[in-house]
Design a binder for these strands. Sequence first.
DNA 1: TCAATAGTGTCTATAAGACATTATGTA
DNA 2: TACATAATGTCTTATAGACACTATTGA
Lengths: 246, 246
Amino acid sequence: MNRALKHDGTMPAAVTVDLVIFTVRAAALHVLLIERGMPPFEGELALPGGYVRAGEDLDQAALRELAEETGINGHELHLEQLRTFGAPERDPRGRTFTVAYLALGPDLPTPVAGTDAATACWVPVDVALSSELAFDHLIILKEGLDRARAKLEYTTVAAAFCRQPFTIADLRRVYEVIWGFPLDPSNFRRKVTKAAHFVEPTGESRTPEIGRPAALYRRGSAELLFPPMPRSADGEHEVQPSAATG
Amino acid sequence: MNRALKHDGTMPAAVTVDLVIFTVRAAALHVLLIERGMPPFEGELALPGGYVRAGEDLDQAALRELAEETGINGHELHLEQLRTFGAPERDPRGRTFTVAYLALGPDLPTPVAGTDAATACWVPVDVALSSELAFDHLIILKEGLDRARAKLEYTTVAAAFCRQPFTIADLRRVYEVIWGFPLDPSNFRRKVTKAAHFVEPTGESRTPEIGRPAALYRRGSAELLFPPMPRSADGEHEVQPSAATG
DNA sequence: TCAATAGTGTCTATAAGACATTATGTA
DNA sequence: TACATAATGTCTTATAGACACTATTGA
């Protein structure tokens, strides 16, 4: 048991990691959800996740769950801790803390069902937000979305959604999909290409089915974006519901 | 794999909260440290903190520890979760996760020794950063400092360091002390007073021992600062990234 | 040629950095 | 009066927003 922990106010508890995994596909932001295969909340939608194991650090646990649920190598993704949730009654089985992670990646492969998961699939976030999710996962999802939106402003994480190499338009579509409103292509290009080490040109270009070929870029070395990408001078742009559901 | 909490993959662990409490006094940023009164790390400096109790939420635990260690009502402070640390060997007593919190407040009263603390005192952060702290608390302190610095840029938390009402110069000194370089008083004033709802004039003024009286302000309703307070146009005053935001 | 998308240029408004100038208190 | 600090104003440069215009592909 927990004999290593002296009984002096110590309360043994379970610790899990839960993942908010976002990707951009079909012009919409998607989140990976599983349908729980066992109680509690059996049959309900939930974020993927699981218990932290004995010798395991938190980041390791998150990467392992990521691999188990999506079959993808987490090192290709942006992964960061979101927040830890520990309301006493959040898990009917007993006191459980969950360390929520945010993972961002390019259009990821169709996930494979994990151990806990009866099914796992990509769900458009606007659909997920109006669903009922197990535990406090809807709150976690909302915080993940807020964090992702905010981080696009002052970091270069948007590039994590693009498979390399990518075009400036690819990158712009990430912003548009996540923020929910269009950006001026001309000003966006100027901003991105003038910011130090946001993107680096490869010299190559890609010819689409229609239209002029587009120059290709790779991620630069910068993590922070200065000056930031302005989201909204006034409180103008609200996030309108997206029509895309495919 | 995992089902109920009893056996299977579940690993019972202890969960603590640790607090990085910052205040500005004597023109320097200070952090509250305790000298540990019992093993492990007896006699060493550490962040205040303690175990999360049975019926307690994380924020509640943080507020309780804050009250115990400083005797202050946490509702007057800015309090936010920083990150959770869970390296397997971080506590020699057994598997322990700690949810680190960042607390920001105006020049706080001299702390009272808490249950775990032999002594508690304010330490200038530059001194603390070059000290040895118990557990992984030095890393937590560094992250707290990074977070505080980053948040001054795009939020209005700087006002949390000022006892109300305050002058524009008071607020500017917060930025200067935390960022570590001087700001132009004229441009700072223009920025702060023109930003929507950062500060609200009280109509009163305060007469110092020498110099012209200064108008007094209170915190406005805004949480976010738009446009942000630019920290460094060029890379002159670099203070390093870290995954910011909470 | 046209349709469609990529990319450039330009004008204007706003915000930032530098810094001179004026204002208002006390000793 | 001198002095110290608060507050305002002004000039210059950088960036953002709007949008006209040119470029390059396939059909």
